[in-house]
Design a protein around this nucleic acid. Structure first.
Lengths: 343, 343
DNA sequence: TTCTCTACTGTGAACGCTCACAGAAGCATG
DNA sequence: CATGCTTCTGTGAGCGTTCACAGTAGAGAA
């Protein structure tokens, strides 16, 4: 009867109102709300109709108070903030996770913790039970947040294999090593022999694995690793630019570069352009990620596609399973070589 | 005494535990928690010590259940998803809002509602009271979500002036018109006389205002508006590319372009490059936003900086004020011309 | 002394939900 | 006919807070 009219927030209907409207008890309404087991078809229908008529929505606070669950999960970023909005991958991942969670009607709480101070507060917040689990994007080794959360028994799924955390923490990652191998093989197949690399940060699993793949393929091809061809970067555009300059200085005869991220590859292109090297004629450049940056670059980047949509949906799946009591799991997903203009 | 030991989630301490530990009643603890009025210094100190000893954290669900507030706000995006992760501005805004809210210890719930179906669900979720207010990023006219939320009396602050919503909804925006005026004046000061524009979507306030600024300055300079020089875009890279092609076809003598977003400007640069026009020698290009895309572009873009940090902090300030019962307000912030290589 | 006022404290009752339990009905089995 | 089992339903208790209210103690005024 009392359908909520527009304007002015009136008191929202409670489970009592629905029960009265449907002519059943609170308990029955609650059972319908939670799967409808042990409910007669007649009652089921009456309750559903009453819910529709009253516009009832369950009060999550009341529910959480008793169940102890919050029905929400956190998306935690422990990188310094600049990284976040500079790296297109984060966005794709964030969007994917939000959507995957939305399918379960679970809201995502975005948490940024770039400073130690913020990290402490966020850890406190999370361990207090305000989210049921955490999707973690950070993966720098020795990340204290992951360690603390794991100790507190908070369900946790990382994006990328966390270094130095034992096997107790679940993660989802692209096959970095295999992707790197594909790219370097591709560069060799073009006839390049002085293949350099700008690595990612070597305290991240991606950085380590991609470098390992690079070295493996060269060694397998009978080419000795020349350390002058290996420079380290930090996944940022500026880092790529600086890396390429160092590379050119140390090994002017470089004829191909495998860059561990598209964003760095943009910087590499800038530096090569400034040095008067043509891409791909003089130097072939391969990126990693297939982020929007790859298409934005001139020339467009040949790169390794990470299956972000699957990564995000798997992260959510594994996290929900863990919240549901299952054991932790690791998921490795295959990558794909995308050829464009830069090689 | 029972300090929580590591591992295995044990029952977290409640306000009762703190009260017992401090030798006072629940009420006194609650008062300390909520500002400490009408609490003796001695009790105050005893409670604080007990909180520290027990590691107590207030249970927000219990609190929300009785206060009716959720102590969280939503960040709502009603754009189709591609826009979200393609546009660097969103990221900057999102980060700024998250940080500004974190200072108040308020978590941000990220909500994506690209489809009509999702919009319905999210609206329902919000009007059910699961967030205290909404930061809205959409601004397409006739956005049904904003209208519905406003009707439901949900505190709401939009980024950019919402079209056709009356003055009842608060918003924070950069001074689009003034920014456009600055840019066009700058282009004229370089001696350009055939100044074209690629507009934003004309159902967005930004699109409308920036076009208005463009026309004003030309008219004031005694230059008649040539409609062949005005083409409309959609803020996307591809839209910019297509726009520039149309522009070149309709007005081949164009010697400057004011593009309503940096991302579109990237597309414009691509099209100009393909057409063999040099930038800035043959055609000067001015963007808008000063997003990361401006620095990524070759040549780097002259653009109009939007004060995103201030926009986000103001949005949060105005929203919290509104939640606190204040009236809606509109805030307009000044922009700034940033000169780089493209003009 | 008595009264009033202020500063402070404790207590019961909610908030809206789920859970455990008790009970009713229907049906098959002993 | 009693007994057990299954399916369904209603009820009381309680989750951890805040809020309103009642009460106490002490200080100052009449």
């Amino acid at each position: 009867m009392t359908v909520s009219t527009t304007g002015g927030r009136r008191r929202p209907p409670t489970i009592h109102d629905v029960a009265r409207e449907a002519g059943v008890s609170r308990g029955t309404v609650s059972r319908v709300l939670n799967g409808g087991h042990y409910v007669s078809p007649a009652a089921q229908e009456a309750v559903n109709a009453a819910i529709r008529r009253t516009g009832y929505v369950v009060n999550r606070h009341a529910r959480s108070l008793i169940t102890g669950r919050s029905d929400s999960v956190g998306f935690l970023l422990t990188e310094p903030q600049e990284r976040f909005f500079e790296d297109p991958n984060f966005n794709v991942l964030l969007r994917g996770c939000t959507q995957a969670l939305a399918a379960h009607d679970i809201p995502l709480l975005l948490m940024l913790a770039g400073t130690e101070d913020e990290r402490r507060r966020i850890t406190r917040y999370i361990t207090a039970g305000h989210v049921d689990g955490v999707l973690l994007v950070s993966s720098h080794s020795g990340d204290p947040v992951a360690e603390r959360l794991r100790e507190a028994g908070v369900p946790l799924v990382a994006c990328g294999k966390p270094i130095g955390l034992g096997s107790k923490v679940g993660y989802v990652a692209a096959d970095d090593r295999d992707g790197a191998r594909d790219m370097v093989r591709h560069l060799l197949s073009l006839g390049r022999r002085r293949v350099g690399t700008v690595t990612g940060p070597l305290d991240t699993p991606g950085g380590v694995e991609r470098l390992a793949g690079y070295k493996e393929v060269l060694t397998e091809a009978g080419i000795e690793i020349d350390e002058r061809l290996v420079v380290s970067g930090d996944y940022s555009r500026a880092g790529g630019e600086a890396g390429a300059e160092r590379l050119l200085a140390r090994a002017p005869d470089v004829d191909a570069v495998f860059v561990a991220s598209d964003l760095m590859a943009q910087g590499v292109l800038t530096a090569l352009h400034r040095a008067g090297r043509r891409v791909p004629q003089d130097v072939a450049v391969g990126g990693f990620d297939d982020s929007p940056a790859a298409v934005a670059a001139r020339p467009e980047l040949t790169t390794i596609r990470q299956p972000w949509d699957r990564i995000s949906s798997e992260m959510v799946r594994v996290l929900l399973a863990q919240i549901g009591g299952e054991d932790t799991a690791a998921v490795i997903l295959p990558t794909e070589l995308v050829k464009r203009e830069s090689t």
